[in-house]
């Protein structure tokens, strides 16, 4: 019976992986210039050492340029951000035992937004273009926000979940006001600020992927290490403690890890909502609450979801492009409502 479960799990994950790869190939092929999937695969393979010897370069050279310099980094980034946001959401929801928790509720996203917006303003004031300024600021502000929230919530060495959520909501609303204030004073930078806030991947090159990866790897690793502890913590903090989980330590590390991921996501792509809220929900409905299954599934499905959303963002008003945040909200929201209505049981 155990053996059977392992097989079933493995095949499910292989399926999810195939879906992700297929949507990636689709994502690379679709755009203003459409490239057939077979060409896409061949071009991609030609860049893998060892395999390229077996391929003859029969494709149009401009296809290769488009794929390697533009589409490939964009698709990879969308997948990474999708996985990152969804994982961060799963961690916040599990940690807070609250279905409404996500990077927004705890204030991390707002913090990152404030960082980015203040950077845009700063650039216009001191008139120095800073290529990596926006992501760096966004990231630093995100981590600072989580530290602020955690310390506000702390009473006598412990940060109870309820305090964390309240502190998060309070800090988040103050930060949102500051963001609005920045926008109010942004003058002719307003368009840039608004565009960034709406979130998207247009024009993001491979350097953004490199920027994301270190934080992504660290955050994801920490989260996967504590999958079992997250399960125990769903039973409540005291029961988890009684099962041998060092609750405060695990909570602190997971918060930092989720903030790292969120900060990195917001830094490279702006504010993309709904992924962190919906994906963990949907996956929990399908796979159950066990984080050892849930987390990898969340990462894969989150990646595929944002990838497809990005494709839609590119095709809906082609040759123009919608901010992907709008697409995730438009597609994700109704689907989410449908699932909740259909389940009719608890929110979780």
């Amino acid at each position: 019976m155990i053996h059977n479960n392992v097989l079933k799990r493995a095949s499910t994950f292989i399926l999810l992986l195939v879906v992700l790869l297929a949507s990636a190939i689709l994502g690379i092929g679709i755009g203003a210039i459409s490239i057939p999937p077979s060409e896409t695969v061949r071009i991609l393979f030609s860049h893998i050492p060892g395999i390229n010897n077996f391929l003859t370069a029969g494709w149009q050279p401009e296809y290769a340029t488009i794929i390697i310099t533009m589409r490939f980094p964009r698709v990879v980034l969308a997948a990474l951000v999708g996985a990152g946001l969804a994982l961060a959401g799963a961690v916040f929801q599990g940690l807070f035992r609250n279905p409404m928790a996500d990077p927004y509720v705890i204030g991390v996203s707002s913090g990152a937004a404030l960082g980015a917006v203040s950077n845009i303003l700063l650039q216009s004031i001191v008139n120095i273009p800073m290529h990596y300024g926006i992501p760096a600021f966004a990231f630093i502000f995100a981590v600072m926000t989580i530290l602020l929230v955690y310390n506000l919530a702390r009473v006598g060495g412990k940060a109870p979940v309820m305090n964390l959520i309240l502190a998060g909501v309070a800090v988040s609303s103050v930060i949102s006001a500051l963001v609005s204030m920045c926008m109010f004073f942004s003058g002719n930078q307003l368009h840039q600020v608004v565009f960034w806030l709406m979130g998207g991947f247009s024009g993001r090159g491979i350097d953004y992927v490199y920027m994301f990866i270190p934080y992504g790897v660290v955050g994801t690793t920490i989260i996967f290490i504590y999958a079992r502890e997250l399960n125990a913590m769903l039973l409540g903090e005291e029961p988890a403690q009684h099962l041998g989980v060092e609750v405060e330590r695990v909570k602190r590390r997971l918060l930092i890890a989720a903030a790292l991921l969120t900060g990195a996501c917001v830094a490279v792509s702006g504010m993309i909502g709904f992924v962190g809220l919906i994906i963990p929900h949907i996956v929990r409905m399908i796979f159950g609450p066990d984080h050892r299954t849930l987390l990898p599934a969340v990462a894969l499905i989150g990646a595929s979801f944002l990838l497809i959303a990005d494709v839609l963002a590119r095709v809906i008003i082609a040759p123009g492009e919608l901010p992907v945040g709008i697409v995730t909200a438009l597609v994700g929201g109704p689907f989410f409502i449908y699932l909740l209505r259909r389940q009719k049981s608890d929110m979780f």
């Binding site: 035992r97 399960n231 769903l234 039973l235 409540g236 029961p239 009684h242 041998g244 989980v245 609450p289």
Partner: peptide, 28 residues
């Protein structure tokens, strides 16, 4: 000593609480 070390020696049954997630009984 660590929480895990204590948990190997001592188990606690709190008043019914915290079973709000759809784990199966055998999972719990």
């Amino acid at each position: 000593i660590s929480a895990a070390e204590v948990a190997r020696k001592m188990a606690v049954v709190n008043q019914e609480q915290g079973l709000n997630f759809p784990f199966t009984v055998k999972d719990v």
